[in-house]
Amino acid sequence: MPFDYRRFNGPEDSVSYKRFSEDFLRTYDELYKDLLDENGKRKDGRALNEARSLCTSISRTNIVSQAKGSAYVELNKTKVICSVFDPREITGHQNEYSWFGQIYCEVKFAPFSCPRKRRQLVPDSDEKALSADLKKALETVVRRDKFPNFQMDIFVYILEHDGGCLSAAINAAGLALADAVVPMYDIVSASSVAIINDQIIIDPTEAEEHLALMYTDKEKNHGLVTMCFMHHLKQFTDFRQIGSVDAECVLKVMDILEKECDKLMLVIKKIMVSNVVRQHNEHKVLLEEAKFREEVLQSKVEEWRKLLNAG
C-alpha cells in the first residue's frame, strides 16, 4: 500500500478485531444453517422469494441541498445516497467533439460501511467495477443526444453495505436523475438475486452474498445476479452475473428479476410523485416569503426616494 500523504494514516499492521472473534472461523455449513432454516425462512424472517421493501417514507429525493438532483435509498440496512450535478462542458484540446453527452459515475463505499473489514479511503478495484457497471446501466437510459459535448457527474456513496449495493445504487441514481430533470427514455429499476445450493434467494443480504460466493460444491449452482430493467420499453440495460450457474438457471432467474423490477418500479413512481408534491408545496411557501421580502425592500426604496427628493 502506497503511503497517503494527504490523510492521517493509522499504523500499517492494524487488523480488524473481528478477525480474532469466534464468528470469524465459522465454516460454510455453519453459516448456511445460520442463514437458512429448514422451513425455508431466512435469518431476518423473510421467505426466499421475498424482497426487502423500498421504504417510501424514508427513501426520498432532493436530499442534498447543493446538488441539482439527489436521492437517498434505504433497503433495511443498505443505505445509499446519490447526487447528480448540472452538465458541464467537456473542455481540453485533446478531447474530440462528442456528439453524445458523457456520463461520469463514481461509486464509493464509506470506510465504515462493510461489516467484515474497514474500507480504505483510496478507491479500490471493487469501487471502479461498480462505477463502470453503473455507467453502462445509465448510458442507455439517459437521452445523451440532448446534451452533446457535455458531461454529467453522478456520485453514489454507500453509507452501509448490506447486500444488493449495485441495484440500490442504480435505483438511487435513477431517482436522482429524475429529480435533476434529466431527459430519460424510461424509469430504471434494478434488483438482485443470490443462488445458493440451487436455491434462488431474492434481494440477498451481505451475509447471503458472502455465502453465495464461498461455495464448496461444484455440482450445484452458486452465484449472484444483478439486473437493471426498463419497464415500459421491456429492455435490459445492465446484467451482471458472477459465480457458476448453468444456462437454464440463468433464464429462470431473469424471469424472476423482471417481475421484481416491475414491482420496484411502482414504488419508485410513488417516491417520484411524492417528491413532486412536496416540492410544489415548498415552492408555494418560498414564493410567499419572497413576496413579503420584496415588499419590505420596496418600502425601503420608497423611503430613499423621499430622502432624495427632500434634499
Partner: peptide, 12 residues
C-alpha cells in the same frame, strides 16, 4: 449533513 463512523482495529 455530516456522518461519522468509527471502526475498531488492533495493532502493536
Amino acid at each position: 449533513t455530516v456522518v461519522c463512523g468509527i471502526t475498531l482495529e488492533l495493532a502493536t
